[in-house]
């Protein structure tokens, strides 16, 4: 229950960090808030040669609105997201999601970049960036690149970040007017990882759904978008029959595992119930009248 031996370097620029990360003679990993990495080190599930502490890179802490998007630095903490008026105004679904992340002491230290790069299959923020069609801005020794959230998560605890690269910031494109949101999660107790969580954002145009996204987590190796359900709802208004059809479809499109926390059947059941709730909430918040 004590970490293995490692070197530690605190860097002050992104370039210094990526240079160390690119050195293939030693396994270097980034430490941001450390709220996922420290448990891994304490359990000795991770044994890197070097920790690269990026908490001294001030540019990674920004959180600002610019050019039709909100940009969040990788070192923004959960508590920063949860208390940000910019996030609350543009992405209340994200403000709500943050309240489900672990506990006060973890939210005080954990960061969005750390959560995304750890890529736990039941964590909230990976689902949120998938829902919000985020662009993940990557720095690397071979130059910067942008990864769409849908291409970022490869499998449980694995992302598309390559050797010599690190996540710098997250761009969330603003939603159109007349948008509503819904977020529901079930966990064994407050702050635990989700047994299942579902979230949605949708936009209404003359009472019809003109744009919709649905994401789920806790039921696969990575968070997932429900493409077929989104297509079924687009261009329609929400009523009881359609809601039943969509929930059936979402349930048939997932194949959750059974573990000590919950059975596959129970998780599938939850996703159906939660999907109905988030769709009704989002539809009402966008100004729709459910019949």
């Amino acid at each position: 229950m004590k970490p293995p031996i490692f070197d530690y370097v605190k860097v002050s620029t992104v370039e210094d960090a990526t240079a160390i990360l690119a050195d293939s003679s030693k396994e270097a990993v980034v430490i941001a808030g450390g709220q996922s990495l420290l448990p891994m080190l304490n359990f000795r599930l991770a044994a890197p040669d070097i920790l690269v502490d990026i908490s001294g890179i001030d540019v990674l802490k920004l959180l600002e609105e610019r050019e039709g998007a909100v940009t969040i630095g990788a070192m923004a903490r959960h508590v920063d997201l949860g208390s940000s008026p910019i996030i609350a105004r543009h992405f209340p679904v994200l403000t709500e999601a943050v309240t489900h992340i672990a506990h006060l002491a973890i939210r005080n230290r954990g960061t969005i970049g750390g959560s995304l790069c750890h890529a736990d299959p039941a964590a909230e923020l990976p689902m949120m960036v998938l829902l919000l069609d985020a662009e993940l801005m990557i720095a690397g020794v071979k130059g910067p690149r942008t990864i769409a959230a849908k291409d970022f998560f490869c499998s449980a605890l694995e992302t598309d970040i390559q050797e010599g690269e690190m996540l710098v910031s997250i761009n969330l494109p603003l939603l159109p007017p007349n948008s509503g949101w819904g977020f529901e999660e079930v966990s064994r107790k407050s702050g635990d990882f989700a047994l299942a969580a579902v979230c949605t954002v949708l936009t209404l145009n003359d009472g019809m759904i003109s744009e919709i996204r649905i994401a789920v987590t806790g039921v696969d190796d990575t968070p997932r978008r429900m493409d077929r359900a989104e297509a079924m709802l687009c261009g329609k208004t929400l009523d009881g029959d359609l809601l039943c059809e969509v929930c059936d479809m979402v349930q048939s499109d997932i194949n959750p595992d059974t573990d000590l926390q919950a059975s596959s059947d129970y998780r599938r059941h939850l996703v159906g119930v939660l999907t109905a709730r988030v769709l009704k909430d989002a539809f009402a918040r966008a100004g729709g009248t459910f019949v």
């Binding site: 430490i31 502490d53 908490s55 002491a105 973890i106 230290r109």
Partner: peptide, 19 residues
């Protein structure tokens, strides 16, 4: 192991002394 670090509660087992 909760303590305050610069006024915020944190888990001291999830923080290195060097941090």
């Amino acid at each position: 192991c909760t303590i305050l670090l610069d006024g915020d509660s944190i888990r001291s087992c999830l923080c290195l002394a060097i941090q």
